[in-house]
Design a protein around this nucleic acid. Sequence first.
DNA 1: CGACGGGACGC
DNA 2: CGACGGGACGC
Length: 400
Amino acid sequence: MQGTNTTDIESGFKVSVESWMSGMMNGMENCAQNGTASSNSSQSGHIEESKTNLIVNYLPQNMTQEEIRSLFSSIGELESCKLIRDKVTGQSLGYGFVNYVRQDDAERAINQLNGLRLQNKTIKVSYARPSSEAIKGANLYVSGLPKSMTQQDLESMFRAYGSIITSRILCDNITGLSKGVGFIRFDQRIEAERAIQKLNGTIPEGAAEPITVKFANNPSNNNKAVPPLAAYLSPLTRRYGGPIHHPAGRFRYIPLSPLTRHSLVFPQVKTIDSLPEETTGANVATDIKSKLVYSPSTGENLLGNSLLPGSALNGSGWCIFVYNLAPETEENILWQLFGPFGAVQNVKVIRDLQTNKCKGFGFVTMTNYDEAVVAIQSLNGYTLGNRVLQVSFKTNKHKS
DNA sequence: CGACGGGACGC
DNA sequence: CGACGGGACGC
């Protein structure tokens, strides 16, 4: 089982881990993800802005409020935590609010968790602004853009009309070329209105055709909200909430600790069901999983499989033992390591009560067996800092 | 070399 | 023509 982390899993992609902050800054090109920095505050402010309250965007579809609480509690004490859900369907809307007790914890949460990859998402963590009508509906849809126009060009064109929160140019999934359409989200709705008045129907410098600038459709009342019948019939393929459109190489950075200088195979974003067998032992996993459906409490007896000691099955999740962590290890490291592999419910660094230093090990609870297996196979033997990690399912071992 | 937590569970 | 990573201010 060791050594799999140094070879490409077919469905994965291999990346050299450098400082993830610099990767974050460098990666913003033509079709990059989000435009502007996370922590810029609005200039609106007649109301004093909270320095403890954060908005978290681009959360994985299946992430629960308690998992979000677990993640952000690893930084500091929370005052509150709320995942926003659709009122009628109960589905996560992919964003939420985390309010810290202390300002410095909120700031550290932005520094440490913004850009964290969780499953198929890269979360964004930034200060929440006071809720107001003035900031709603400030997203613009722009079409007719010259194909050569980059995200930077787009921002340059709109910058004069207000403070840009995010920007994006859509690209063809296969060719990577611009589709000539994009989005600009302003801080304030008036700014967006002003941009429409000034730019709609105008011809960009050096272009031949005029662009169209209008308010983006509101995603909550779009018409593709009715999923096809198939969506109800194959829950496993819906684990990530729907089809994924991530050509390999779309991710320009990964949020691993700057501590490490090694390379690591990250799972490509796709459902486990479609992973090639030879890379994951998915056959075994599927067999086990189907048996567990009938006999969930006796996981270990079904297998004779050393991969699966009984104590690993822990309530609703699979508990993973991580050994050889450095004394200064904190929870965010475990989130960074395991988050990309699937749904993580909880992480824990075990510390000495006197020194408060890590005792060399910790635990990670993941929801899905298949994802836990891939995480273990990928991270066992991985060099973090100057330590080779040992990663396995938790056993019942206890101190003598 | 070293190695598997802990708070809490409720009727 | 074109709608994103579905979902950015408390659904």
